[in-house]
């Protein structure tokens, strides 16, 4: 008989780690909490700071969970834990939206991952587009203060860190085309469909 490492039951360390992560989030020691949500648009990574929801990422379009978390670690803080309870509000609102039971989001937002100045004004302009309505890149650029900067507006919408809740999918090309989408055009069509708009 020798001095072997003590055996631990399968899942035992994972369960204690989950309790530790929840405590880290609740006590404010972690700066970012995240959770996953299976949605009709594919799996979403939701992340929040103490100020509010800071990131909604289409997991597959963004290189997977690790890549999403690494980007948040570089830009905000590496103090990130999986704490699903901290995202309960956001998950419930998104679920209701996809179930056709919610037209507006009430969850607090943190724009720390959105660019500054014009990019941020573009996202704020997009929030004003009501459920079921659409706008154009030119209109959004105008609402953000620079009517001619519609390409820059498109770029800002493409880099939207909070898609769905900041409804950049409601911004279409002036000629009536779909334009682009941060999560791929299939998802843009699906979201417009959720809102009762048939978008080709």
């Amino acid at each position: 008989m020798s001095l072997n490492p003590p055996e631990i039951a399968p899942g035992e360390a994972a369960a204690i780690a989950a309790r530790t992560a929840a405590r880290a989030a609740d006590e404010g020691i972690a700066e970012v909490s995240y959770a996953l949500l299976d949605a009709p648009v594919g799996r979403l990574v939701l992340a929040a700071t103490s100020r509010g929801l800071v990131r909604i990422a289409y997991e597959l379009e963004n290189g997977g969970l690790d890549a999403v978390l690494e980007r948040i670690a570089r830009r905000l803080s590496p103090r990130i834990v999986e704490a699903p309870a901290r995202l309960d509000g956001a998950r419930r609102e998104l679920q209701e939206y996809f179930d056709g039971e919610r037209r507006e989001f009430g969850v607090a937002l943190d724009f720390a991952l959105a660019g500054g100045g014009f990019a941020r004004r573009v996202l704020h302009a997009a929030i004003e587009i009501p459920f079921g309505a659409t706008s154009s890149y030119r209109e959004i650029a105008g609402a953000a203060g620079s009517p001619n900067a519609y390409r820059a507006a498109g770029n800002a919408l493409g880099a939207n860190p909070l898609p769905i809740v900041v409804p950049c999918h409601r911004v279409l090309a002036s000629g009536g085309g779909l334009g682009g989408y941060t999560g791929g055009l299939e998802r843009k069509r699906l979201l417009l469909g959720v809102e009762g708009r048939d978008a080709g």
């Binding site: 631990i8 360390a13 530790t20 992560a21 880290a24 972690a30 978390l69 670690a73 590496p78």
Partner: peptide, 19 residues
């Protein structure tokens, strides 16, 4: 190089620490 997100660090070392 940057530090891994804390959750990954926790997942990677939780069994060693518990043992």
């Amino acid at each position: 190089r940057t530090l891994p997100p804390f959750q990954r660090f926790l997942d990677e070392h939780r069994e060693d620490v518990l043992r």
